[in-house]
Design a protein around this nucleic acid. Structure first.
Lengths: 221, 221
DNA sequence: ACCTGAACACCGTTCAAGT
DNA sequence: ACCTGAACACCGTTCAAGT
């Protein structure tokens, strides 16, 4: 993603915006979003925290950069196959990336984002809908539905996987087992919930959403 | 929600866990989640921050209490009508509450929660599915789909409405207008997106999800 | 132009001391 | 039993000073 143009013979390459953001992404991947601070990121880069402010406006700007870097990383499928197949594989690619960098979901959910990376992703998706014949209104509804469906599952992935999530899996299971008797219906699906793979679950229910969109497209004609 | 049992003749009622949590909820409603600190909440209650620790383990515990208080507040519909109608009105009630306290979505998304309030809510919903004839497997998938769908839209509501969201609406629209020309498909639905009511949008697409669940139920038989 | 050190105004939380 | 004040180990960010 970055050209490494600043690499010199000294062991510490000069700082650039991209390098700061990439380091922040790597740091969040390794240590979790909640332990990312300007001071620690600076130390990680062998620099005082205050130097970062030469390349990034403030921490919010850093967050925006991190989100965008992740969106750029989503592997876009080539434009082959039906619109249903294309939409499905775009969604799957996004979920894979979200599962890999769970912190980005938290960031996205608390901040939102309209950087070039996320907009390019969105443009590609909406373009497929237009090509399929959706009109403005239907395309808008479809995007909203697809985004909500994807973010909903991504949230569940992030809730379980992210370092931001303050309880670990065992602790969660223990808490759950303790209270389950009071909630008989929940108890019956508790086991399935605890070992549910949300990425699989997402793909499983995707067809329902696609079917809904097909019906909407047919109704429009 | 609280009995006010600690009310005395003095102007400052004695602190209780419920009172601390209720005050935190009110504070987040008024000033936003990001400006809620133990020190400010203490001051708001006419007490030093450190006093709060007599009623709450730490800030995470306070957060858990706040989430649960909101779940308890969701107005549950009475058990009349088809399962489709019941599920629909439970979802609508949850969305209304989330829209009213947008910060709770952020909290839920960054922390998760299995307190008595959220479990009771979940138990009620899953109970309706069982009563409708879903088996364990189908009920689990259905819950996951409903939860994701709801949380996905709730996230969008929260992104726009919450004080946590760092940009305001005008700023967002301005940013959007600036970059839209580069993203032609997004630009076509941009207007609809900017003035979209997510709660309406949620209800609009709910039928698609219900239809999918009906098909799943039929396939099971 | 970029990096630094000290400083400012905050955090959550601990702990010994008060009543 | 509950509340307090001082303290500790952190934050993000500003700003004048260095090179």
């Amino acid at each position: 993603m970055t050209y490494d143009a600043g690499m010199t013979t000294t062991e510490r390459p000069t700082l650039t915006r991209d390098r700061v953001i990439d380091a922040a992404v790597a740091y969040a991947d390794e240590f979790g979003l909640e332990s990312l601070s300007m001071r620690k990121l600076g130390a990680h880069l062998g620099v005082e925290a205050m130097s970062l402010y030469n390349h990034v406006d403030n921490k919010d700007d850093l967050y925006d950069g991190m989100i965008d870097a992740i969106f750029v990383d989503i592997e876009m499928p080539d434009a082959a196959g039906s619109w249903q197949e294309q939409i499905r594989s775009i969604g799957g690619a996004a979920m894979d990336t979200f599962a890999q960098h769970a912190w980005v979901v938290t960031l996205l959910m608390t901040r939102g984002n309209y950087g070039p990376g996320s907009l390019a992703f969105m443009d590609r998706t909406v373009g497929i809908l237009f090509e399929a014949g959706f009109d403005e209104d239907a395309a808008h509804h479809a995007w909203q539905l697809l985004a909500s469906h994807t973010m909903g599952y991504a949230f569940q992935v992030a809730s379980r996987d992210s370092g931001t999530f303050t309880r670990d899996e065992e602790q969660l299971a223990a808490e759950f087992a303790l209270v389950a008797p009071q909630f008989p219906h929940v108890a019956r699906i508790g086991d399935a919930m605890m070992k549910c793979d949300f990425v699989d679950e997402y793909r499983y229910t995707f067809d329902i959403v696609i079917a809904g969109l097909e019906a909407r497209l047919a109704a429009q004609r």
